[in-house]
Design a protein around this nucleic acid. Structure first.
Lengths: 203, 203
DNA sequence: AAAGAATTTAAACAAGCGTTTAAAAAATCT
DNA sequence: AGATTTTTTAAACGCTTGTTTAAATTCTTT
């Protein structure tokens, strides 16, 4: 028999919203249940525990963000084009979910690291055979010889940090939300140019 | 009369250690008091409330990091040299306190932004007259014409994110602590070269 | 040494926490 | 329609939270 999922989904949506806004320790099961319009006991009825619900929320968010990256890895493009699209996609995705990076960073720093190894991103990277494409490009001089981890670190640093540091920058430089949007828009262009120039120097 | 500060300092040190490790909502006043070897009531006797103690801890941390930056701003060097030293200093400071960025980012995203405006960084920036130096360098073609906020965003992104993303990268790429240290060491060189090349293109 | 102020303590406060229970309500099946 | 299972509910569980109180202790001053 099929059960009606609406209660489960309502709780999951509310949990995602509240966990992201306040963190695991910054909210209560009752608060999540209230936002979902449900009784407190239903949280544990459907999801066993607050911790388990949190685990599900974080996993689904990380999969969403990882999917966006792996789609580009798997596409049939040059590495330079992949880099451009990667930056474009990250800025777009982050503009739609600007609060996610600080949530992930903040929560992941408090939990043990083995907590999310089940997602198995290494397998996905392998399937996209992006390592091979990088090695070949570096062998024929089309790309600067840098380890793949450092390449991803360079790209992701420049995409994610502007969103992570938004509250910081706004405090330090007295910037409004609208002004910050403008900074982000032009910043994407700077980042693209800087990273491409560095990774593909012969161009 | 002078009071003995040892109890106050012990609590402040314990608070900094535990707040940074577990976040404001991730620890209790009793836990802080226990680490300081004091009675719970002393936390409120000396610091009025947990929130106020937290405020003091965050302010002192942010001043420490800001000081390191303003020292470079105020020095008598070219912008290119300042950029090099800024990156060098940030990587060194972060290597000594790798858990601070994720603490600041994680906690600042949950609190209201006016919370820390009392630190008045804008005044410090003004005193260092860094804006003037940038304008002049950009006028005579020595530096790419980018707003100061975007310049700082470029530099800080590449310094801080590698420390923010450490748990993430280690999960995704199965990297040990020692291996990650090596990635960081070489990454500092990449970042310096990339940022300098981009901000001072004629060199 | 006595008096007064500052510090430290154990105990208690109400409130909120995650989770469980057992009964009520709704839905499903025969 | 009656029986059975699934979903929802209110209430309670023991425990921890930040904070306060009032008594005990230590220190300082006279």
């Amino acid at each position: 028999m099929e059960k009606d999922h609406s209660a489960e989904v309502k709780i999951l949506d509310a949990a995602r919203h509240i966990f992201v806004e306040k963190g695991f320790n910054g909210c209560s099961s009752r608060e999540i249940a209230k936002e979902a319009g449900m009784n407190v006991a239903l949280v544990n009825y459907y999801f066993k525990s607050k911790e388990n619900l949190f685990h599900l929320v974080v996993s689904s968010i990380m999969k969403e963000f990882a999917h966006s990256i792996f789609e580009v890895f798997k596409s049939d493009l040059s590495l330079e084009q992949k880099t451009r699209i990667l930056i474009e996609n990250e800025f777009d995705l982050l503009a739609r979910h600007p609060e996610i990076p600080s949530f992930i960073i903040g929560e992941l720093s408090k939990k043990d690291q083995n907590f999310f190894q089940c997602l198995d991103f290494e397998n996905e990277i392998e399937k996209a055979s992006i390592h091979k494409q990088v090695s070949e490009a570096q062998a024929n001089g089309g790309m600067r010889k840098i380890d793949f981890v450092n390449i991803m670190l360079l790209i992701m640093s420049n995409c994610h940090f502007p969103f992570l540091a938004k509250p910081m920058i706004q405090t330090v430089h007295s910037v409004t939300d609208t002004q910050y949007q403008d900074y982000l828009k032009i910043h994407k262009q700077y980042v693209t140019e800087m990273v491409i120039n560095y990774l593909f120097p012969t161009k």
